[in-house]
Amino acid sequence: MGATPRFRQPMDIIAPLSEQLTRWNGNGNKTLVSVQTLTILLEYVDFDTAFRYLHILTHRVQAADAIGFYHMDPDIHDEETVNTLKTLFDAVVVVSDDGQEWSVTETYGDRTITSDHVQSHDTDVSPPESEGGLINSIRDSLTGVFPGSGEPEFTVASSETGESDATSGNSTTSGDDGATPSSSVEDFPEDAMLTDEDRIRELLTQYGGRMKQADVTEETDWSKSTVSRKLSKMEDKGLITRVQVGRGNLVFLSGYEPETAKSPFEQEQETD
């Protein structure tokens, strides 16, 4: 037991994902991979490793002819980090706080397109076909991936599918193909990918580092006692802190506690 949170070797995650993607490749649907946040990855491994990890991941996603979306909150990371990571992806999507406005910029090209242009009826500013396809694909995917799209600002980078792939890709999330793309999502052996603790951490990150315990229960569909047990374990490990507020608990991701709470991370360093 080290002092650092358990981090599985990158290939323990990439290999099964890659296998599953390859199995789905050519089944008539476009497979879409959404990595809900890069923040946790960047928090727990050094940047060099994270960069390699993302390169292999995007490569494998591309090799299986899938589309990948990788999300991060630019407010959490400095600009240079975001800019460095950009080089791994085909395009960067910036979504405004209210989710109403967005822009897509090619990483290795000059094209930028914004929500204004797409909505405009002026043919002069309408995007060329191929761009529209990419944009639409990304937008469709976003809508599917984020049911509550009023979430905080996301930088979304579409993985390295060739642009043409992305344009032809009817997003798996649209689900009006007669096929059952949504089942792909359910079929995926999620256990192979995410531990319950990872999932809770991701939820917390999505919620900006803190959320009500009741919301954890709601989001995960686990029972109240299961959630309580898991959170208590995580609190022991110093991954989160819980603070009683009124009749419920507020859960803070390590590093997001209010000033008065003692940093559980330091505590962990000492005791573990």
Partner: peptide, 25 residues
């Protein structure tokens, strides 16, 4: 140069299996 290198990297990675990549990490 990044665009070129990205393509080369992709070619190299295509020849690498899970074990090779595991060694990378």
């Amino acid at each position: 140069e990044l665009a070129t290198l990205r393509q080369q990297l992709s070619d190299t990675a295509t020849g690498m299996d899970d074990e090779d990549l595991r060694a990378e990490f």
